[in-house]
Design a protein around this nucleic acid. Structure first.
Lengths: 348, 348
DNA sequence: TTGTACGCGTTATCAA
DNA sequence: TTGATAACGCGTACAA
């Protein structure tokens, strides 16, 4: 018994060597026949293929990876699985990977920096061919990423990206999105627009806030810091932030709110409703990301649709191209978004 | 250039051998020190650990897997990713796997039998330690599973299970669930209850239909075959099936509908609404699985909550126990469900 | 067209 | 406590 609690058991599986022995050829010929190389006699090839099938031969990909130094595996690091956005992203990645002969190892960091570190390390020790990463909220130190890139592991960031460290990034233009939806409100006459902001440690949070501010300034509306309240990415934070905003004297209150994402907006809606205020008549509200729920709740929410599937697929295709040397790292890829106007903004 | 389109590039990574050379010890000692074995001199161990860190050593898990014939990888085969049920299942699996030192390779079969075959084969050639499978709708031949089990790859089925082939199964008691929700309707006075059934090729479909029928019979209601319409698992099928039911002469129409799952029920609701019928006054409807949307739509839907996270976690824990020889295969594990009464059944 | 020798990076085994 | 050797199963390179 070794330290793992496992006996060293024989694999029990047929090897190329075994097939070779049975057929009186060398293992090399078997290998060639099975990987479809041209230089094998047609008849011996047929014999080998037949024997392989009869014996239930399954090539050992581990051994293959060891010699080739190529695993055909992509490591995926995401901060949460259940949020409706990521499953779609993963579906896009899986489609792209499957078509190109890669597999996905999925790791969930649950927004925890240490788990993310651990994930990246163990994925590297598994010698994944590349990494697809969306960073956890608590990440501040980028040296792990830099080390990986330096050691030759291609990385493509998606959604929550880290720029300027030599890795490609696939995301929406957060600043622009937020500016757009803010201008949508401005265009419909709202003057006192608040922002429920994301964590400033994440690019998404910073960029969206910048977009909000840019839209105000461009339209000659004075930026009022007291109208920006930190909410984070979740419902609870949105609720608490909105509670704070509603403590402002009535005449200083916002007439519209731009939330950093849909969950935060849902939380805020709850707070607004608890205060017996009407949406959108008393306070309009908009989100971002188009969570599945956005169109289903009693006051359907105006938001910005992010093409999750496309983000996943694009990120995977970009990574695979870089792994195979067909494309250079360091790209910045922006995928298009779409303003989805529903009732919560009062513009319908 | 080999047939893969890849040059054979040197790994560029530090090996245990390299550390050994620098320190004037053997590779074996390095290996022992790094895997925390007891029989290493404390001082040499420290030296080795330090050197490993300084040189940025990442153990090669591939080589390790090759000798140990153990990958610490679990292959997950699911029919669809985006359906809200599976992300939660995967989260449960990931949590369990992470704690036990395993990784998940995720494969999406998109309900396609050939893709499922392919997935299971390539996962086996990657020598995964075990498989977690929810079968695709189009699967009829179970020999792949049997072969895998015979060759010693543990399998645990979840949700859409295959019983009696020696593999463990984790699921809800579909027959019982469907009987329960049907009896709920009967208990509130509905007499003419229809069933939108799932694909009969899948155990879930068959079992739920059996539960529906059992509930009727147990309560002395005559089973009417014309009230069972095949819907499948998706919205569109539910819509079409309901359309058919609504073509029945008015007095033969059902006053309540038991759908095989929530998406089918959503489709049916759409059809009912298009016919200007009211839910639940004209026709009551219930689903199963508690899709996230069930509670959010304008007429919230009565359904049965399946503990997705728990199913995933239990399946993974069961598999890991079997992989490590701590538990025997062939178990049948039932996880509890919960009737969630909302407005669509008219019982509130 | 086919075979031989060796290497990939690690760990089990047995000897020192 | 440490080291030498072999093995895991395959693919490359070269020779036959």
């Amino acid at each position: 018994m070794n330290h793992n609690g496992n006996y060293r058991k024989p694999s029990g599986r047929i090897t190329a060597e075994a097939i070779a022995a049975k057929l009186g050829v060398s293992a090399m010929t078997v290998s060639r026949a099975l990987s479809g190389r041209p230089n094998v006699n047609k008849k011996t090839k047929e014999k080998i293929l037949l024997a392989a099938k009869r014996l239930g031969y399954t090539p050992n990909h581990i051994a293959r990876s060891l010699t080739l130094r190529k695993t055909q595996i992509i490591g995926v690091v995401i901060p949460e699985i259940a949020h409706s956005f990521f499953p779609e992203v993963i579906r896009g990645m899986e489609d792209a990977a499957y078509s190109a002969g890669y597999h996905l190892i999925l790791t969930n960091t649950a927004e925890d920096y240490n788990r993310e570190l651990d994930a990246i390390n163990t994925l590297q020790s598994r010698r994944v061919d590349g990494l697809l990463i969306s960073t956890a909220q608590t990440v501040t130190d980028h040296s792990v990423y830099k080390d990986a890139v330096r050691l030759g592991t291609p990385i493509v960031f998606f959604d929550r990206v880290v720029q300027n460290i030599g890795a490609s990034c696939v995301s929406i233009d957060d600043e622009d999105c937020c500016a757009r939806i803010t201008e949508h409100l401005i265009g419909h006459g709202y003057k006192s627009i608040a922002h429920l902001s994301g964590p400033p440690s994440i690019s998404i949070g910073r960029d969206r806030q910048r977009g909000y501010r840019r839209a105000l300034e461009k339209n000659g509306i004075k930026f009022r810091p007291e109208l920006v309240e930190r909410a984070g990415f979740h419902e609870k934070g949105g609720y608490l932030a909105m509670e704070k905003l509603l403590q402002l004297p009535a005449r200083e209150r916002p007439d519209a709110v731009v939330a950093v994402n849909d969950p935060a907006a849902f939380g805020a809606m709850k707070s607004i409703e608890e205060h017996k205020l009407r949406i959108p008549q008393d306070i309009a509200i908009v989100g971002m990301t188009d969570d599945v729920r956005a169109g289903l709740i009693s006051i359907p929410m105006t938001t910005i649709r992010q093409p999750a599937y496309e983000i996943g697929k694009t990120a995977a295709l970009t990574l695979i191209a870089e792994i195979e040397g067909k494309s250079k790292p360091g790209k910045r890829i922006i995928v298009n978004t779409e303003l989805t106007v529903r009732r919560s903004c009062g513009c319908l």
